[in-house]
Design a protein around this nucleic acid. Structure first.
Length: 426
RNA sequence: GGAGGAUUGGCCGAGUGGCUUAAGGCGCACGCUUGGAAAGCGUGUAUGCGUGAGAAACGUAUCGAGGGUUCGAAUCCCUCAUCCUCCGCCA
């Protein structure tokens, strides 16, 4: 979340950022509410501290009086204290109310878009940042979309997924399962070669972790929730991995902290329909390798582009045509300040599929989860957090089989062959 | 799931209602000492919030978390979490 001090100091800048996200002036008024609540909070805190200081002082006096045998004087002071205590208690309750209200207001304010982000009202305003379309293949005349290929080569069975669980839970089998596992290993190996430490995190997280990354409360409906134990199935490895450092104060020397992890991801995707959800285009469970960095604020901009280069390298090795979009204000996710989406062209359905999202959250997540570092002057500062998919598997799987299909079968990209153990799926 | 024990600062560890401003040690930082180092000696060493322009300083809260009792709680009571030991179940 944003810092109140930031809202105070740069209110106009913050408001301009919200306008980029197509926020109306009515909604932007929440900034004034935040400042007013913070004023209240400070005033109440000051008088409460005064009352408590009096209680502490007089209590110490009472102790002395009892010790010196002046019980009567002590008892008189007891009455005095109990009055002050009532006041202090009232102030404490008031303070709690204000703080809760303030936090609630702050939770509704998204991150401020980076300077590079353009104003927009929908995804149509996203800018194309880079493009590699020379890899778009000329498919043979019988070319099929991936949902037909999956069936033809018996790689993924949706009907069985429905039988076992429900719609959107694909079952991979045979060479399909092997290809999936090959991709996971390939991505993890590439990430560790680039200096990321491999993590296998828990797949269920508690509420505090969900709040830390900004998944809660704003994406409450997107996550599967196990009510009995009050745990959430992760929508991405970003949640458990970034939360490894929740509440920590790290040393400047630790930067950059580079972590990667493979996990299944679970998303309810309520409200999706039509061709968006056809085949593997949008499913409730998919595999993803995530890369996360925790970085010094001055270096996070460069780090974002380093992560983008990593993802480009993966797609090039898989021989998949892609384009990179810089998201406009309206399409930017809640906690992000700057996001580049990678889309791969699925040649048979002739559709761009989002396969990666690389974001700089700056201090938004770290403020929520109190992830700090000591700067050169020994002052605590908020670190910057970044993450990206490298890569999201279901759609990569779909793109590979669509783009690399031939009339003889699906040709495995060279970079993957040592992982699959076969060159072609016939 | 059941029974018992535990949780104190970066780490170890003392502390059963006021003399705790949490002893002592380790680690770390700085200084003294030294030709240089080690040892030794000294000083300092948490986080949030508030009052200060800010540093200093002061106030306040925090001894696993949250409540409560009391004029006063690390210490007494309640709830919860986690860890350890044993029993049960189990890949």
């Amino acid at each position: 979340m944003l810092l109140v001090s930031q809202i105070r100091a740069e209110k106009e800048k913050v408001a301009a950022g919200l306008r980029k996200r197509a926020w109306s002036d009515d909604r932007i008024a929440v900034l004034d509410k935040v400042i007013a609540l913070d004023d209240d909070r400070k005033a109440v805190k000051t008088s409460m501290d005064e009352s408590l200081a009096n209680v502490n002082r007089i209590s110490a006096e009472i102790g002395q009086l009892f010790k010196t045998g002046k019980a009567q004087e002590a008892n008189a002071k007891k009455v005095e204290v109990s009055v002050i205590k009532t006041t202090a208690k009232d102030l404490e309750n008031r303070l709690k109310e204000i703080e809760a209200e303030l936090l609630e207001a702050l939770y509704t304010i998204p991150n401020i878009p980076d300077e590079k982000v353009v104003h927009g009202t929908s995804e149509l305003d996203n800018e194309v940042y880079q493009k590699w379309d020379s890899a778009i293949p000329a498919l043979h005349s019988d070319a099929k979309p991936h949902w037909d290929l999956m069936e033809q080569y018996n790689m993924v069975d949706f009907k069985l997924g429905v039988k076992i669980t429900g719609a959107g839970f694909p079952l991979y089998r045979g060479k399909g399962a092997k290809l999936q596992r090959a991709l996971i290993n390939f991505f993890i190996d590439e990430a560790t070669a680039a200096g990321y430490e491999e993590i296998i995190p828990p797949l269920l997280v508690n509420e505090a972790s969900g709040i830390g990354t900004g998944s809660l409360p704003d994406k409450e409906g997107q996550m599967y929730h196990c009510e009995k134990d009050d745990l959430y199935l992760i929508p991405t490895a970003e949640v458990p991995i970034t939360n490894m450092y929740r509440g920590d104060i790290v040393s400047v020397d630790d930067f950059p902290i580079k972590l990667t992890g493979y996990t299944p991801c679970f998303r309810r995707e309520a409200g999706s329909y039509g061709s968006d959800v056809k085949g593997l285009n949008r499913v409730h469970q998919f595999d993803k390798i995530e890369i996360v960095q925790i970085q010094h604020p001055e270096k996070s901009v460069d780090t974002l582009y380093e992560m983008i280069e990593h993802v480009k390298m993966l797609l090039t090795k898989l021989e998949l045509p892609y384009r990179i979009l810089r998201l406009c204000g309206a399409d930017l996710t809640f906690a992000s300040s700057l996001t580049y989406d990678f889309e791969v062209f699925a040649a048979a359905q002739e559709k761009w599929l989002e396969v990666s999202s690389v974001s700089n959250f700056k201090s938004y997540q770290s403020n929520r989860m109190k992830l700090r570092y000591k700067d050169e002057n020994g002052k605590t500062q908020f670190a910057h957090t970044l993450n990206g998919s490298a890569l999201a598997l279901a759609r990569i799987f779909a793109s590979i089989i669509e783009n690399h299909q031939t009339d003889k079968g699906i040709v495995i990209p060279k970079a993957l062959r040592s992982y699959t153990g076969f060159d072609i799926i016939e």
